[in-house]
Write a protein that binds this DNA or RNA. Structure first.
Length: 595
RNA sequence: GGGCGCGUGGCCCAGCUGGAUAAGGCGGCGGCCUCCUAAGCCGCAGAUCGCGGGUUCAAAUCCUGCCGCGUCCGCCA
């Protein structure tokens, strides 16, 4: 709690110095938030001082309290200082905290979430091969990436969301080949034979339609003695030489697929500011420059057939192969080489770079990082996330072992609509559907970001669609409750702004109201912590706590009491409502006002 | 074989830059709607923090060995 910390810092530092601490700053930096509210709002562990001061931690804590207590408790804002078990415990005065935080929250809507000077950054996420519909396995990247975009924006940063389009190479080549050489009938025949001809719920959406061509071509590719391989290879080679005709053919093949994927993403609330094509760096020649620069590296080596690599063993890369190839024997570049050029270009576009990558890209990312070092180009910040597994194993577009996001969202919206229908009998079908859509989508997003990125997710329908307490609908429900208060006041002819413009008396806050005030006060620092530690799940937890605290407040602090309005409780409720709503925006949850 | 990551109540999951009684949720049991939305609130039961060593005043957290799971080790993307 930064408000309390700032308030007590000077006194505590002085007291630490007095009792003989030679590095009070360092001791003070250990101050933490206690687990239990009975232990105050901040606690300073005194154990590290025991040795140098030759006193027990308990004794030290007690000395500190003695020296600091009188002055601090005279300060407006500190209600109590005590010590227990070697900790020094500081208690904030909730009335003071409320006077510091509630009004600013109500009045400075545009600065909600701001905690530190803003930065400008480019976040690259999703960047999935445009070869088929967006599926659940790919969605963790998109949802996580978009959440970072949103959280940074909430914190005041200038963010550009970027999609790197793989518009060349094998994946798109296979798709282009298939569209050229197969027809619907043939595709159906091939998929039937492999028992992969599953009916699509979106047969006319291009990503769903074309993925069948892609899957069929992959099946042909694996057949003995097929000439498909040769055809695809020819295309791929042409694309890597930036052959205009081929690249256009590729674009015609993938663009409708990409559009379909983006449509799905848009339904999830995910949009991009810019798209950069991989071929750009072949066409503009930077890949060639990079390759020749890398040949000057002391790590550079050349294989028998003329392929070039960096030997990374001395840079900590271990395994069967420690070589990083950046140029094939025929002189052409590889995906990773283009990625280096892409990073060089990205640094010309932003001050900070953040990449969202699956854990399968860890080695690749390390190799690119070392190559960037060799070229004296800064490394980007990277967030890795673990895979989403299906009960049958890894999801794969190629093998058809997938759950498409379009289907998951339909199911989510449908189930949510049924839940609303059971609860609300005063709404039209249209309203029910709208709420169901918002709830379903929010729930799906939340169930992915609520778990720490490095932990694997086992996809289960019932988990992905969970509407239980640890979920987006729970948060949305608190928000809707808060909205209903304002709505009712306005229906009764009140003007909310004039009710809120009064000066409140914050004395004698109930326990639940005080808890809510404290929770509200830590919004920005919780957001910032979550961003800095690259764990959106932390902000998820915070928002769940805020919603829980609001629900408790709601239980025993009424705003409307007969024909009287408690303006102070209204101010608290509105501040909470505003922050829940802002938090939802930051996580991609749709904060509807009725549900 | 090697690298990286993960392993917390029956299930999901937080805590992991060491600190006080390991936080929530689901499921189970029991309470609360003459009162602003009960998708809520309150209580009870349930944890050898994968296993073994070590460092420390203090270990779920750091180190190390083992076991299990994931992922990577392509002149693929």
């Amino acid at each position: 709690m930064r408000q309390l910390r700032e308030l007590i810092a000077d006194e505590v530092l002085m007291a630490l110095q007095q009792i003989g601490d030679v590095n009070p700053e360092s001791t003070f930096s250990n101050i933490t938030t206690p687990r239990h509210s009975s232990q105050g709002d901040l606690a300073l562990p005194c154990f590290s001082l025991a040795k140098t001061l030759k006193k027990s931690p308990q004794e030290i804590a007690s000395l500190l309290v003695e020296s600091v207590s009188e002055k601090l408790t005279k300060l407006v804002g500190v209600s109590k200082v005590s010590n227990e078990g070697g900790f020094c415990n500081f208690f904030v005065d909730p009335e003071w905290l409320a006077s510091q935080t509630i009004k600013p929250t109500l009045e400075n809507l545009e600065s909600i979430g701001h905690f530190r000077p803003p930065s400008s950054l480019l976040i690259e996420h999703t960047s999935a091969n445009p070869n088929g519909p967006f599926h659940v396995g790919r969605s963790r990247n998109a949802i996580l990436g978009d959440t970072f975009v949103r959280m940074h924006r909430l914190a005041g940063d200038d963010v550009r969301a970027e999609y790197y389009v793989d518009d060349m190479g094998k994946q798109v080549g296979i798709l282009a080949w298939a569209l050229d050489n197969l027809d619907e009938e043939k595709v159906t025949e091939i998929l039937d034979a492999a028992e992969m001809n599953e009916p699509s719920s979106y047969p006319h959406k291009e990503d769903h339609r074309r993925v069948r061509f892609y899957q069929a071509a992959n099946l042909l590719l694996n057949e003995e003695g097929s000439n498909v391989e040769a055809g695809v290879t020819e295309l791929v080679q042409a694309s890597e030489e930036a052959d205009e005709y081929t690249l256009e053919k590729f674009e015609n093949a993938y663009q409708p697929v990409l559009d379909g994927m983006l449509e799905t993403l848009r339904r999830l609330g995910i949009e991009f500011d810019s798209f950069t094509k991989e071929s750009k760096f072949i066409i503009d020649g930077t890949v060639d420059v990079i390759m020749s620069q890398l040949q000057d590296s002391e790590l550079h080596g050349e294989a028998d057939n003329g392929a070039h690599f960096l030997e990374l063993e001395e840079r900590g890369v271990q395994g069967k192969s420690t070589k990083f190839y950046f140029r094939r024997g025929d002189g052409s570049s590889l995906y990773a080489t283009r990625d280096i050029a892409y990073h060089q270009w990205k640094w010309s576009e932003a001050n900070r770079l953040l990449n969202i990558l699956g854990e399968d890209h860890k080695l690749q990312s390390k190799q690119v990082g070392i190559a960037l070092d060799e070229l004296e180009i800064k490394n980007p910040e990277v967030v890795f996330y673990a895979f989403t597994k299906m009960p049958g194993g890894k999801m794969s577009t190629r093998r058809g072992n997938v759950v498409y996001m379009d289907d998951l969202l339909d199911e989510a919206a449908e189930r949510a609509t049924e839940v609303v229908r059971e609860i609300r009998n005063d709404l039209s079908d249209e309203e029910l559907t709208a709420i169901g859509e918002a709830v379903g989508i929010s729930a799906v997003r939340f169930n992915i970001i609520r778990v720490s990125p490095e932990k694997g997710i086992n996809f289960r329908w019932e988990d992905a669609l969970s509407f239980e307490s640890d979920s987006a609908p729970f948060i949305m429900y608190s928000h809707a409750r808060a909205c209903s208060i304002g709505r009712r006041l306005e229906e009764e002819g009140h003007n909310l702004n004039s009710l809120l413009s009064k000066d409140y008396n914050w004395s004698e806050l109930s326990e639940s109201a005080a808890s809510l005030v404290k929770r509200i006060a830590t919004f920005s620092e919780e957001l910032d912590n979550s961003i800095v530690s690259q764990r959106p799940n932390q902000f998820c937890s915070y928002l769940l706590s805020l919603a829980t605290d609001y629900n408790r407040f709601y239980r025993d602090n009424h705003v409307i009491d007969g024909d009287r309005v408690n303006c102070r409780n209204l101010a608290l409720s509105e501040a909470a409502r505003i922050l829940i709503s802002a938090g939802c925006t930051g996580l991609g949850i749709i904060a509807i006002d009725s549900m």
